[in-house]
Design a protein around this nucleic acid. Structure first.
Lengths: 231, 231
DNA sequence: TAGGATCCAGCTTTGGATCCTT
DNA sequence: AAGGATCCAAAGCTGGATCCTA
C-alpha cells in the first residue's frame, strides 16, 4: 500500500491572510519532517531524533514566514508568531516552549503592555510535531490568549521583571512564574549579557529567555481557552 | 530559654461536643510527638523519623477517641473521623491519606451514599504533623466536603467501583481517580482478599484500600472549600 | 486481620545547559 | 549574537509494597 499523499507543501510566498496561513498549516498535517525537507530540496535532516531548531526553521520556510533578522514576528503582516511544539505519544508537550530572549539591562523600564514577549504571544500558530522517530506534523492551532490567560501571563511577567528591575537577577530561578518562566538561553553558561545589580552597578550575567511551561501549552492544545489551575 | 509550655494534652475522656474536640485538637499545636508520648506515660517512640501508624494512634488516645474495633468512626457520637497528615517544610502533604479498606466481594452492590468511605469522609479532623525529625503537631482543621468536593469524590468512587463490580479488579490501578484512589493495603503482596472475577468466579486478590491523593488534601489544608483542578 | 499509616524504587518532571544556522 | 529549539541529570512524585500494634 502506498502512503497517502498530502497536498504539496511547496509554498514559499508569504500567506496573504490568516485564513490562508491556517489553510497552509493544516495542509502540513501528516507530513514527516524528512518528507517535508525532501519536497523542499533540503538534504535529509541528519540521523538523530532531534535537531535543535531545524524543525522550526523548516516549517517557517514552508509556510512562507518572512523570517529574517530584526526583532519581528514570523508573519509581521498577520501579527502571527510561529512555534513548533514537540508532542509525546500521550498528547502532551515534551518540552517547554521558548518565546524570546530579554534585554536584562532594560528590565527596570519593562512593561507588559509594550513587551516583546507580549507581542509574540498575542497570536501564535502552534504546529505540533510528534516527539518520536517519525517527527510527524500534527494539526496546527491558531491561538490568541483569553483575557484570563493574558492576566496570568502578565502576573508571571511582573513577578519576574519586578526582581530583574531591582537588580536581583541572580534571584530569578526558573521556579518563578506559574506559566511563563525565565531560564538561561545561551550556548554555554558564560556570563555574556549586561545587567544592573541591586546598587545600580553594571554586571555580566548569563543571557536569559522567556519560556512557556509545558503544562500551559498542553492545556492550550487541548482547550485553547483553558488555564491549568493550581491545587 | 525554656521551651514554651502548651496546655496539657493529658485528656482521655471522649470530647463532649465538636467544639470541645476542636479546642482539644487546637491545644496540641506546637507539641512534638515525643513530648506528647511522655506526657501520656508512653515510652519514647523509637529512633526513626516515622512510626507507621504510631502517630495516629497516639493522637487518637490523647483526644479521647473511642477507638476500639468494629467498623466505626473515631468519634462516633460526633460523626468525626481523625486523620493525621504528614506535612513537608513547604506546607504540602508528604503522603496520600489512607481512608479505609474495602470489601471487594461486595463491590457489585456498593453505592456511594451508603459506603463506608463516604461515612468516613463526611467530617474529618485533620491533624498536621511535620514530616521532619521534630514530628511537631500543627493546627488541626475540621473539614466537611463541599457539594462540589463530594461530587468529585463520588465520581472517583463510581469509576473505581464500576470496574470492581464487573469483576475487573485487576484493571484498577492507583492511576484511576482524580482525588480518591484505590491501592494495595496489606503487610505484603499476598492475595488474601476475596473478590469475584468477570465471570462471577471467586478469586483471591491483594487487599485494597481507598486513599486521598496528596494533591487533594494539600488543597483542603490551604483552603477547605477548594478543589485542585486539572489543566 | 483491621486499623493506623509510611517506605521507596522507578517514572516523570523540569531547571539549567547546550546545540545549530545565519 | 539572535533566533530556532532540544538535551539531560537531578529533584519530585507516587503507585505498589510494606510495617506495627492490638
Amino acid at each position: 500500500m502506498d502512503e497517502p499523499k498530502p497536498p504539496s507543501p511547496r509554498r514559499l510566498k508569504a500567506p496573504s491572510s490568516i485564513d490562508d496561513l491556517l489553510a497552509r498549516a493544516h495542509a502540513l498535517e501528516g507530513w514527516t519532517l524528512d518528507r517535508l525537507a525532501s519536497a523542499h530540496g533540503h538534504a535529509k535532516l541528519g540521523s538523530g531524533l532531534h535537531f535543535k531548531g531545524k524543525a522550526g526553521e523548516l516549517v517557517e520556510r514552508v509556510l512562507g514566514a518572512s523570517g529574517g533578522p530584526g526583532a519581528t514576528l514570523d508573519f509581521p503582516e498577520l501579527g502571527v508568531e510561529l512555534k513548533t511544539i514537540p508532542i509525546k505519544p500521550d498528547g502532551r508537550p515534551a518540552e517547554s516552549t521558548f518565546v524570546c530572549a530579554i534585554r536584562l539591562e532594560d528590565a527596570e523600564r519593562a512593561e507588559w503592555q509594550t513587551s516583546w514577549v507580549r507581542q509574540k504571544l498575542m497570536r501564535v500558530l502552534f504546529v505540533p510535531i510528534s516527539d518520536d522517530s517519525t517527527r510527524m506534523l500534527g494539526r496546527a492551532l491558531l491561538w490568541e490568549p483569553t483575557s484570563l490567560q493574558e492576566e496570568a501571563l502578565q502576573a508571571d511577567f511582573d513577578d519576574i521583571m519586578g526582581l530583574a528591575g531591582i537588580g536581583r537577577i541572580e534571584d530569578i530561578s526558573a521556579h518563578i512564574g506559574k506559566y511563563l518562566q525565565l531560564r538561561p538561553k545561551a550556548r554555554d553558561g558564560s556570563p555574556r549579557a549586561l545587567a544592573f545589580g541591586a546598587d545600580g552597578e553594571r554586571l555580566r550575567t548569563v543571557p536569559r529567555g522567556f519560556y512557556l511551561r509545558a503544562r500551559f501549552t498542553g492545556a492550550i492544545l487541548r482547550n485553547p481557552e483553558s488555564l491549568p489551575d493550581e491545587a
